[in-house]
């Protein structure tokens, strides 16, 4: 059972690493006029990708470019720019790749519909498999009239052998 305990331990370690990774936001003191702007800033930097370390958003990245872009996002919010203007600023320079939530377009259709398509295929395969198995077991348990008669005779013979007194 040592191996099972080892697996459990390594799973726990992995889980911890994942939780730790998710919490690794870069801390910078920022002042906002109102909580709404602070929230917008957080949402924007968590939805914009850092191009230097591509699997991190601006909020998590320590790259100098990410720090510059966080500063720019902050400045633009203070200047009163709205979210669309800030996102457009980034897209105009770095392309739609910076968006962690890409817009729905013909080129991104597969990206958006893919998971649902795969889920539908999976459900279809599962249902087909279950239905086949159900009909297979039904067929296997179906006895012909002759087989049923034989079974009845066998059962009768057995009960009469073991307990002849309890026959009714």
């Amino acid at each position: 059972m040592i191996s099972r305990r080892l697996i459990a331990l390594s799973l726990a370690a992995l889980l911890l690493a994942l939780i730790g990774g998710a919490a690794a936001q870069v801390f910078e003191a920022r002042e906002f006029e109102n909580p709404e702007n602070a929230r917008r800033y957080q949402v924007l930097i968590s939805e914009l990708r850092c191009l230097v370390c591509q699997n991190q958003n601006l909020a998590d990245s320590n790259a100098p470019l990410a720090a510059d872009l966080r500063q720019l996002t902050y400045d633009m919010i203070r200047e009163g720019k709205n979210d669309a203007e800030i996102v457009d600023f980034m897209v105009a320079r770095y392309g739609e790749f910076v968006l962690y939530r890409p817009p729905l377009k013909p080129t991104t259709a597969i990206l958006w519909s893919g998971p649902f398509l795969l889920l539908a295929i999976g459900i279809w395969l599962l249902l087909r498999h279950l239905r086949r198995r159900a009909s297979a077991t039904a067929q296997a348990s179906a006895l012909s009239a002759e087989e049923r008669a034989r079974l009845a005779r066998m059962l009768e013979a057995e009960t009469s052998e073991t307990d002849p007194g309890k026959r009714d």
Partner: peptide, 13 residues
């Protein structure tokens, strides 16, 4: 030195 022109040019590496 600030990299501001670089940002306008979409420089990332």
């Amino acid at each position: 030195p600030t990299g501001r022109a670089g940002i306008d040019l979409g420089v990332y590496g």
